[in-house]
Design a protein around this nucleic acid. Structure first.
Lengths: 250, 250
DNA sequence: TCCATTATCTCATTATATAAGATATATATA
DNA sequence: TATATATATCTTATATAATGAGATAATGGA
């Protein structure tokens, strides 16, 4: 197996995940119950998180998210402000098409979701920020690959092998290269159940003024909804969104 | 000794602290060198931080701040949006008075700095966000105490005992209570070298429309600059800032 | 006031993080 | 292009540091 990860750290971020708008403060017992930890352990983690500033205690034993997280969040946005700027654009597309929309940046292992706008439909595909998509079996993955030099592509595909291994699908190298040609030529990528059955996606790139691909956008949802008319509509709406983002991005 | 904190977590946040605008991505060796860690350890931490979404790797072995931090930061701001709103107000005061300015919320152990605006002076007192001030020997601490019920005050002073212990200064309970009366009556607090020698501060409260004290503001700097004329000027400028914040805060 | 609940602390046990070293990969230099 | 050097990644025995049972203190109702 690969190097084991640090369990304490993972636990800590599981604790942080427990916080939300409805639960802005937590105590040791609550955390222990929700995560099945020993009370002592939960308590120690809360104290440590407070020590580093990720949490802050107001009442005795009750902790809320702390100033360090605000700082780190601001810095994260500063070093990569795209997602923040992009969100309202995605919201508009999502409202208009009544399907979920997301934006991905390029991660070593595949497109990394940095912003999502979920549709209001009762049944919808849930994708969380931070999700990494496979390179070969997703519209956005192929889109990124299509716009790389062959060398870069080979390197990313090698790194992405871990994810690729999860899929049982085999890919014929030659026809795959041909597919990428078409994606590059047409300026958009389509996925009709390649990654997950019954899930489809239409994806377009976002270009910087320097001509680099800085983001990919996609509309995704139940395969049954993606007839050719809808695909066409989604594609042109996404392209509009893409230009909007490009123009805002100086 | 008190319960030991979780060292892994502390290390992880030390790693996160290494990131800034000038160093938006780091590798294992860099981290190892800067923190004196073993390369393997640094590497494992980076991988784990990536696993939880706090970091994201673009190039092989190079990590930048990740989307999870943006999310947590947004949530932290959502559960406590004051600091974000307050910053520009502090900046204005700081520019005008040419001294550093900060805002604190109430933490169990003392006023907790949530926002700072540092003066441009070559020599200035540095206070970082997340710093906890002592209750008894700081202007803001006394200000918070002054506006509590005696019961609440006793409870906070007990919890803050750890910090208090750091100071060698002894406080006469009776005259201290009298001081607080004056602070409450006059609507501001003054510190002329009580906490650290040569460091002075003027502090005023910020009130919510419901009449609760939600924040304390203070101008602080080298004692020598804090003559009575300056104190008066700082006080009235801070009061104006306080009303501004109150009015924006619905 | 007492009682139940929760927060905090202590410490022996052992699971888990650690770091030396091996290997793979990238980058620099000739 | 080949070789060298630096860096990233993996493996694994060992020691350290996290763990959780249990004791104690503090809290907040009845």
């Amino acid at each position: 197996m690969s190097t084991p990860l640090n369990g304490s750290l993972i636990k800590a971020f599981e604790i942080l995940r427990l916080f939300d708008e409805d639960q802005p403060e937590l105590s040791a017992v609550t955390v222990a119950r929700k995560l099945g930890l020993n009370t002592s352990t939960a308590h120690r983690f809360l104290l440590t998180l407070e020590h580093v500033g990720a949490l802050t205690s107001l009442r005795r034993g009750h902790f809320g998210l702390g100033p360090r997280l605000e700082e780190l969040g601001r810095l994260a946005e500063l070093t990569n402000p795209l997602p923040v700027m992009v969100k309202p654009v995605l919201d508009a597309v999502s409202r208009e098409l009544n399907e979920s929309v997301m934006a991905c940046r390029l991660n070593r292992l595949g497109p990394l979701c940095v912003s999502v706008s979920e549709s209001e439909r009762p049944i919808s595909v849930v994708v969380k920020t931070g999700t990494v998509l496979p390179f070969q079996h997703s519209a956005q993955g192929r889109l990124w690959l299509a716009h790389m030099t062959p060398e870069t592509r080979a390197s990313y595909l090698q790194d992405g092998a871990v994810l690729r291994a999860h899929s049982s699908k085999k890919v014929d190298p030659e026809s795959f290269a041909h597919d990428l040609e078409i994606v590059r030529g047409s300026g958009f990528a389509l996925n009709l159940g390649d990654n997950e059955p019954d899930i489809a996606a239409v994806s377009v790139p976002v270009w910087s003024t320097e001509g680099d691909m800085i983001l990919s956008l996609s509309v995704f949802g139940m395969l049954s909804r993606f007839d050719s008319a809808f695909v066409e509509r989604a594609k042109s709406r996404l392209l509009a969104a893409s230009s909007e983002i490009s123009s805002k991005w100086k």
